[in-house]
């Protein structure tokens, strides 16, 4: 089990547990993190699971692939820390990951 922390737009933090290989999106959906809409269910097709990776973690994540990068560029308010949480899979290397949530997905 790994830990992942979600910080909402008002600064409220919630630490949750994740299984090996589980996406950050599915951790959020399973635990009632309502800011992650994840409408397409994790196919990189809707852009409604946007999160901002905490700056202490940006260097440690694998880079987005072409389809994720293409979607990120077309989100509302993207930054260099933007990721689609459906594409972030939990591993030992990401244990303790912190992500920030946008106020709205679109």
């Amino acid at each position: 089990m790994y830990r992942v922390t979600f910080v909402d737009a008002d600064g409220q933090a919630r630490e949750l547990t994740a299984n090996e290989g589980q996406s950050v999106m599915s951790v959020a959906v399973a635990n009632g993190i309502d800011q992650i809409l994840a409408e397409c269910g994790g196919s990189c097709a809707c852009g409604t699971c946007h999160c901002y990776v905490d700056e202490t973690w940006t260097e440690r994540l694998p880079a987005p692939d072409d389809s994720e990068q293409g979607m990120i560029e077309c989100l509302m308010s993207p930054t260099e820390r933007s990721r689609l949480s459906c594409q972030l899979k939990m591993t030992a290397a990401l244990d303790g990951l912190v992500v920030h949530l946008p106020r709205e997905q679109y």
């Binding site: 959906v29 009632g32 809409l37 409408e39 397409c40 269910g41 196919s43 097709a45 809707c46 679109y106």
Partner: peptide, 22 residues
């Protein structure tokens, strides 16, 4: 809210025009 309905489908064929319809 939340309201994770399936009206736009899901997966790879998730409705392309959903944001325009909304």
């Amino acid at each position: 809210n939340p309201n994770r309905h399936l009206a736009f489908g899901g997966g790879a064929h998730f409705c392309l025009g959903n944001h325009l319809a909304r």
